[in-house]
Computed example of a mutant assay.
Amino acid sequence: MTKEAGEAAWARARTSREGKDHETRTRLLSCAEDVFAANGYTPATIADITQAAHVSRASFYLYFTSKADIFHAVASAVRDEFLAAHEVPGVDENDPVALGRASSAAFLAAYAQHLDLLTVIEHQALADPAIAAIWTEIQERPRRRVIRYVERLTAAGQADPAADAEAVADAVLGMFAQFARHRITDPVRFENTVDTLNAMYLRLLGIDARRA
């Protein structure tokens, strides 16, 4: 075998190994979310996670150092996904009706998907400063984003909000969270709920959807 062929074979093997490593880590994270969401943080064990993921305890320690470590990774991943729900590429931010509907749908889906785990994260934030920082981001970054958006629309004369921007942001996010607790799985009901949320959102902003 030539040197070049040997290097190519080594590169393929490394790529394959990296792919399997990524797959195993992803499976561990997914199963860990299910375990923590179902059992809570304290009762959950590494054995529960490895059993659900069909991997050995030794394999677990190739990727994570402890239960706390994988919980932090799970919470971080949920935070990233949750915050990404507030980014709606392809939607004109100057169109509050379209943006409101897209944001309502994304937020409702993300919140409902991770509802049980969010409760666990909130509880664990009381005891773990690192998780508390993640929980603060989940709560505050969307809130600040809504505040800035309401202020921008108001300054541009596009909105006449029912209250100050902070109060509107609190009302909007609280409303979304409450509706997410219904765990809507029926597609038609989901779309109807999004329409309802968007109508309420626009009313809070003082925007007439028929004229926007």
Results as ranks from 00 to 15, higher is better:
Glu140Cys: 10
Ala8Thr: 09
Val194Ala: 11
Thr50Pro: 02
Ala11Met: 08
Val97Ser: 00
Arg12Met: 08
Arg57Phe: 11
His114Ile: 06
Phe176Asn: 09
Asp80Tyr: 06
Pro96Ser: 03
Arg17Asp: 05
Ala110Cys: 11
Ala167Leu: 14
Val172Cys: 06
Ala5Phe: 11
Thr154Phe: 05
Ser59Met: 11
Phe179Ala: 10
Val188Pro: 11
Ile131Pro: 02
Tyr111Gly: 08
Ala109Asp: 12
Asp164Ala: 01
Asp95Thr: 08
Leu197Gly: 00
Ala167Gly: 15
Asp160Val: 14
Gly100Glu: 04
Asp208Gly: 02
Tyr61Phe: 14
Trp135Thr: 02
Leu108His: 02
Pro96Asp: 04
Arg27Ala: 12
Asp95Pro: 02
Val146Lys: 02
Ile46Val: 11
Ala110Ile: 06
Val188Cys: 06
Ala209Tyr: 07
Pro96Trp: 01
Leu118Glu: 11
Asp92Trp: 09
Ala155Tyr: 06
Phe190Gln: 01
Leu204Phe: 12
Asn192Ala: 15
Leu99Thr: 11
Arg189Trp: 15
Ala155Met: 05
Ala58Val: 13
Lys67His: 01
Gln158Lys: 15
Ala169Val: 03
Arg148Gln: 13
Asp92His: 05
Ala132Gln: 09
Glu191Met: 10
Thr136Leu: 14
Arg25Asn: 01
Ala132Val: 07
Leu28Gln: 03
Ala9Tyr: 08
Ala9Cys: 03
Arg181Tyr: 07
Asp186Tyr: 06
Ala106Cys: 06
Ala209Gln: 09
Arg141Ser: 08
Glu93Ile: 14
Leu108Trp: 03
Arg12Cys: 06
Gly19Leu: 07
Leu108Val: 01
Gly6Asn: 09
Asp208Gln: 03
Leu83Thr: 06
Tyr61Pro: 03
Thr15Asn: 13
Ala8Ser: 12
Thr45Gly: 01
Thr2Gln: 09
Tyr149Thr: 09
Ala212Trp: 03
Ala58Arg: 12
Val97Met: 00
Asp170Pro: 11
Glu4Pro: 05
Gln51Pro: 06
Ala167Glu: 14
Ala75Trp: 03
Leu28Pro: 06
Ala9Glu: 14
Glu137Lys: 15
Arg183Trp: 04
Met1Val: 08
Pro129His: 09
Ala180Met: 07
Ala112Leu: 05
Thr185Gln: 13
Phe60Asp: 08
Glu87Trp: 08
Glu23Gly: 12
Asp69Gln: 01
Phe82Ala: 04
Glu166Lys: 14
Glu137Tyr: 11
Val150Glu: 10
Ala127Trp: 10
Glu23Val: 01
Thr136Met: 13
Arg14Thr: 09
Lys20Ser: 15
Glu33Met: 11
Asp208Pro: 00
Glu151Leu: 10
Ser103Pro: 06
Ala38Ser: 15
Asp92Pro: 10
Phe190Trp: 05
Arg17Leu: 07
Ala212Phe: 01
Phe190Met: 02
Arg148Leu: 13
Ala180Phe: 10
Phe64Glu: 05
Ala169His: 08
Ser104Ala: 15
Leu117Met: 07
Ala163Met: 00
Glu137Cys: 14
Thr185Pro: 00
Glu137Ile: 04
Ala9Asn: 10
Ser56Pro: 03
Ala105Tyr: 04
Ala125Cys: 00
Glu140Phe: 12
Val168His: 04
Arg101Thr: 07
Asp160Lys: 14
Phe71Ala: 04
